[in-house]
Design a protein around this nucleic acid. Sequence first.
DNA 1: ACCATGCTTCCACTGAACGGAAGGATGGGC
DNA 2: GCCCATCCTTCCGTTCAGTGGAAGCATGGT
Lengths: 249, 249
Amino acid sequence: MPTVTARVLDVLAAFSADRPRLTLSELAARAGLPLSTAHRLVGELTVWGALERGDDGRYHVGLRLWEVGALAPRSLGLRETAMPFLEDLYEVTRQNIQLAVLDGTEVVYVERLSGRSSVHVFTRVGGRLPLHATGVGLVLLAHADPQLRERVLAAPLRRYTDKTVCDPAELRRMLADVRTTGVAISDGQIELISLSVAAPVWGPNGEVAAALSVVVPADGTNPHSFVPAVRATARGISRALSVGEHHLL
Amino acid sequence: MPTVTARVLDVLAAFSADRPRLTLSELAARAGLPLSTAHRLVGELTVWGALERGDDGRYHVGLRLWEVGALAPRSLGLRETAMPFLEDLYEVTRQNIQLAVLDGTEVVYVERLSGRSSVHVFTRVGGRLPLHATGVGLVLLAHADPQLRERVLAAPLRRYTDKTVCDPAELRRMLADVRTTGVAISDGQIELISLSVAAPVWGPNGEVAAALSVVVPADGTNPHSFVPAVRATARGISRALSVGEHHLL
DNA sequence: ACCATGCTTCCACTGAACGGAAGGATGGGC
DNA sequence: GCCCATCCTTCCGTTCAGTGGAAGCATGGT
């Protein structure tokens, strides 16, 4: 049952955003491995550069692994094309700009631009959040395979704030709305202090490849004023993607 | 000799920027594995999400691996703190902004901001370049451990353009200059069309944690006009790093 | 109909991976 | 100074997971 490959991956999966640095013992415990086995695996991973060992003796993910990860088409290709557009959008809005893709039944944030004056949000490049509670999530869900959509709506939907929409019927209505208007406005569903305006980025084959959003403070200006810029940016990226024959899927 | 772990890593290392998508056979060949062995390993990696299989049957690096890679402190922690400053610098200059760290005897680019109006450069997030031919490289080399510096200067230095400085003595002089002025100006050493102005980012323990640069067109304005902004940005990030007790090394 | 290319499955053999145990290293309490 | 706790490293005999050659399948070009 426990193949070596699986164990190696377990070791990698032991790291998380809140615990990015682990001692050998912690690592072994989290990966469910005997200490001596972990010691050997971690040693090999470290030699290669997948892990690195800090001055304090604790291990963390290494630069080499990060490099390989950076080759993931949904990160590299997408970001390369999108960046100039995101940059423009940032300049107009001076707020956090996020780019995210769908993976399984979650949103994965692929890039985030943030300025000193933007709201402090807890999303993180490489982070995951559920689809129903974020702007980008609503966009991706609205245009996802209907089968997936039903699966998500059938599962219990976590409540983050009292503004989080957890009712399937209401969500369904919102998703229809997203499809007609082309944007999603998610108001305080994940954090009360912020709301986001999101729009879909279309890939070359008529599918939604990603979603982008602007996060604005909840007390700030009317979110609708951001809609045109967000929509234009999304359209710009979509066009650039279809031209470029880019390394997306 | 061939441990399973090493083989898994060989499979991952088979992907590169120019060949981010591979068939099973290519993968097996590049990793030096029999087809059936590769088939099994790749299968396990794919189930976990380290690799993904495209519609065309070819494999590429998966989002899951990218996520783990994103936990590398030198990427995540550094970028989180630096981003707002880089953003400001971009707004002032409207040119490519690059953030890079030292790994071994090379520069690894950790982030890059680019606008529509910036020069098109071939550096890539996750990419590697030698130290002697880039602005960030000169900065990192200038402040590196003297032992490493000697090792780099002793090795043969690749020539990219006729402006590339490959003479150790001259490089040594330039590095001393970088240390006194606090910035490096690398003119056409890697590509004739661009030059870069780079400055060191200091970590909390008085070591150089990273370097940042602005890349400007070679025919453009005087590079020296960028120096104050670059220097100020680098100083800002350095300060933010020492405050934050950040997840750097 | 044939061949080329690339993928998948099977299975008997074997040596690489395993992990318990013993030995270091470090550091803190008293 | 001594003891104990925590964490890391090394060793080595046993065993079973990993191996890879071979045969079979799928596609698609000519």
